[in-house]
Design a protein around this nucleic acid. Structure first.
Length: 272
DNA sequence: TCCCAGGCTCTCT
DNA sequence: AGAGAGCATGGG
């Protein structure tokens, strides 16, 4: 892997195990869109990015060295050796799924944005999740280059259910408010959850009204860097049954969350 | 039209 | 402690 900074862009060469499409379109983030083949734009927290993948080249437009090394490198988890993770898989079917989804990386997203987004995701479909999050940002975020930032918990904590009716988020609005208030009042310290055990962090998240095991595990995995969290949604439960007979001991392992994304992507793309 | 969506809470056994 | 209804809304 080689990183070059030039013309205010960041160019990455010889980067293994990365597909921008698989990573941004596998259901872990909801604010990315493909403009044309291989060219994506989107937001992370209060930052806008245009990123393109060509043959053996990834370009982050208008990203200088400082922005790359302090933010995007970690956001895309470029430093982690996913090839090694895949090589260590012994279960043959899991290896098949991993090979199929080998371009997926687990994004290091902002904890609050992740929490709020996955509260919205429950009993919902992805196009509508994206729509609700778009309205959340355009109504309550800050105007930034190209769009709107994700609103802070402090901002949302001041609002009431009536204010949130513009989101058309249904029964989830009351859950958003409870999460915003608990985070804004520091009843739940999201940053601290990164450094405590996965079990303890999950129990903290479960204190939020509207957060159950699945949403908590998504926040642990996509926003708090707990890669051993294994979110079980309807797709995963079905895939575990059909691919592994309902039992897979790897769901308890160090990189269970990475495996989960491979299985999820494999199941969805292959329509099993 | 009808079914269902990366679930969760509440209630009833 | 396990099962089932209800939840808001709208995409397909």
């Amino acid at each position: 892997m080689q990183v070059i900074f030039k013309n205010n862009n960041t160019y990455i060469y010889d980067l293994e195990c990365f597909s921008v499409a698989a990573t941004l379109d596998c259901g872990q983030a909801f604010r990315w869109n493909e403009i044309s083949k291989g060219l994506w734009e989107g937001f992370a927290n209060d930052k806008y990015l245009k990123i393109e993948q060509k043959e053996n080249e990834v370009i982050l437009y208008d990203v200088n060295e400082a922005e790359y090394s302090t933010f995007w490198e970690n956001y895309f988890d470029f430093k982690r050796d996913y090839k090694l993770i895949i090589e260590k898989i012994e279960n043959e079917k899991l290896k098949t799924a991993a090979t199929f989804g080998s371009g997926i990386r687990i994004l290091n997203q902002d904890p609050w944005e992740t929490l709020c987004s996955f509260i919205i995701s429950q009993n919902n479909n992805i196009p509508r999740i994206k729509g609700i999050i778009d309205r959340l940002c355009s109504n309550f975020g800050e105007k930034i280059n190209g769009g709107y930032s994700f609103p802070t918990a402090e901002k949302l904590a001041e609002l009431n259910l009536d204010d949130l009716s513009v989101l058309r988020s249904g029964f989830r609005a009351k859950y958003i408010l409870d999460a915003a208030r608990k985070v804004a009042r520091n009843e739940i310290d999201l940053e601290k959850l990164k450094s405590i055990s996965t079990v303890d962090a999950r129990n903290e998240l479960l204190k939020i009204y509207g957060v159950g095991n699945k949403v908590a595990d998504c926040v642990l995995l996509f926003g708090l860097n707990h890669l051993d969290a294994f979110p079980k949604d309807v797709w995963i439960k079905r895939a575990l049954l059909e691919m592994f007979g309902g039992e897979l001991k790897e769901t308890e392992s160090e990189f269970a969350g990475v495996y989960q994304q491979y299985i999820f992507y494999f199941a969805r793309e292959n329509k099993i």
